[in-house]
Write a protein that binds this DNA or RNA. Structure first.
Length: 377
RNA sequence: GCGGUCGUAGUGUAGUGGCCUAGCACAGCGCUCUGUGGCAGCGCUAGCGGGAGUUCGAAUCUCCUCGAUCGCC
């Protein structure tokens, strides 16, 4: 992988760049489309290209469970397996330490909407997983058999999967973790980061992940630590405070410490109203489930806002989801048809909305790139 | 015309005298979803066909009435 910076904004920390890999070149900033189980749910790989998704991120934990990295390696790697020839990333499994651990216990996501009673303290242990100095014991959601993933295992799996960019194994901490817990967790994440660098033998790009929760001292410490290591780029993980309006401030703490010449990936954040703020902080790539996840709940993103397509008010609307959109769904199908399909329980509705949402999100980011190009942000 | 069975939210149903200010499912409406769980979670709206009686108390018992359905003439 090679990263080139084409332009730096004079108004903000935003920048235009190119990530070059053996599977092609990606213009940044860009949204990385989520393909956890080697698929963008409901779409074929040909369709992923049609919605202009430049890069995908799959998941180590899920692919380890099925079909297994040994098989993926035999199949010629993930690109060949899923017939997708653009750049790909794999997430390390570190997010599952949170989502299957304290996140599940407390029913919280990585971004808190409001104050929460729960607190993660240093002596607390998650109910369903076990975190040790060496890694994490999970139970397979398929058959309950024990799974162990640490930095060595994660890198090994990611090498076999064969994405262009891989991530160091980390512990994504809960937004309700206190300072002491987060500090201890950070020590593990840092130790694991070094191990990841040591054990990697492939020529894949390896990104270290900055953690530290909402705590300024820890975020800065983590960013400095990761920056001191020979990573090819950086992930910014974990949570962003009790209120996502704080996110730009927290990104500033971190990005200030990261080397300018290397790409920065913001993990798991990217609602439409977040994008410009993040990009102005200097984020190059980011991934988010919103376009695809909302699509499967029947919600379409348009220039008129979020449309809940199941409601009966769309049953008779013989017009496209978005009049300004040029995607194949908007050119060929109506709200009435999509509404009918949703209410009839037909899976094609989910496909059509997924296709449109991704096209819409990708166009939205492309527009932000244009703004940087024109010197507007 | 006679006899039987049955009428509970939009739909399908639970409930056979007090634990029913009537439960559930789907539908409707609203909210949630950010390193992903397609068909989810939470909330709201909405009903005992109508009337009279028995009873301390009726969706539940009695009578009348309306409607559905089956059988017989």
């Amino acid at each position: 992988m090679n990263f080139k910076i084409l332009k730096k904004s004079k108004l903000s920390n935003a920048r235009l760049g190119l990530i070059e890999t053996s599977h092609g070149v990606v213009e940044t900033p860009c949204l990385v489309t989520v393909a956890t189980q080697a698929t963008v749910k409901t779409l074929t790989s040909e369709e992923i290209e049609q919605v202009n998704s430049p890069m995908l991120i799959a998941n180590t934990f899920h692919l380890h469970i099925k079909p297994g990295e040994q098989f993926l390696k035999k199949a010629g790697g993930i690109h060949k397996f899923m017939n997708f020839n653009r750049p790909m990333m794999t997430d390390s499994g570190g997010f599952q330490v949170f989502s299957l651990g304290f996140g599940r216990d407390h029913g919280v996501g990585k971004i808190l909407k409001q104050a929460h009673d729960a607190e993660v303290t240093v002596n607390q242990k998650p109910k369903h997983i076990k975190i040790t100095q060496d890694g994490v014991y999970f139970k397979s959601p398929v058959d309950g058999r024990p799974l162990f993933i640490g930095p060595r295992e994660s890198i090994k799996i990611q090498q076999d999967i064969g994405a262009d960019i891989i991530f160091a194994f980390d512990e994504c901490t809960s937004p309700v973790a206190n300072h002491e817990y987060t500090k201890r967790s950070l020590e593990k994440t840092h130790a694991w980061a070094k191990i990841c660098l040591q054990v990697k033998t492939s020529n894949q790009a390896l990104f270290g992940i900055v953690q530290g929760g909402k705590y300024k001292d820890l975020r800065i410490e983590s960013a400095k630590f990761m920056a001191s290591l020979p990573f090819d780029g950086f992930g910014i993980g974990g949570e962003f405070g009790d209120d996502k309006r704080q996110m730009p401030k927290m990104l500033d703490w971190v990005i200030k410490e990261l080397p300018e010449k290397k790409p920065r990936h913001l993990l798991g954040v990217g609602h439409l109203d977040d994008m410009e703020k993040m990009i102005k902080c200097g984020v190059d790539t980011f991934d988010c489930t919103a376009p695809t996840h909302y699509a499967r709940r029947g919600v379409a993103f348009t220039s008129e806002g979020k449309l809940i397509m199941r409601t009966q008010k769309y049953l008779k609307k013989l017009e496209p989801l978005d009049k300004n959109c040029v995607c194949q769904v908007c050119l060929n199908y109506t709200k009435a048809y999509i509404c009918h399909l949703l209410r009839a329980g037909e899976i094609t509705a989910l496909r059509l909305i997924t296709f449109h949402n991704l096209h819409y999100f990708n166009a939205y980011v492309a527009n932000i790139r244009e703004k940087i190009k024109r010197g507007e942000i």
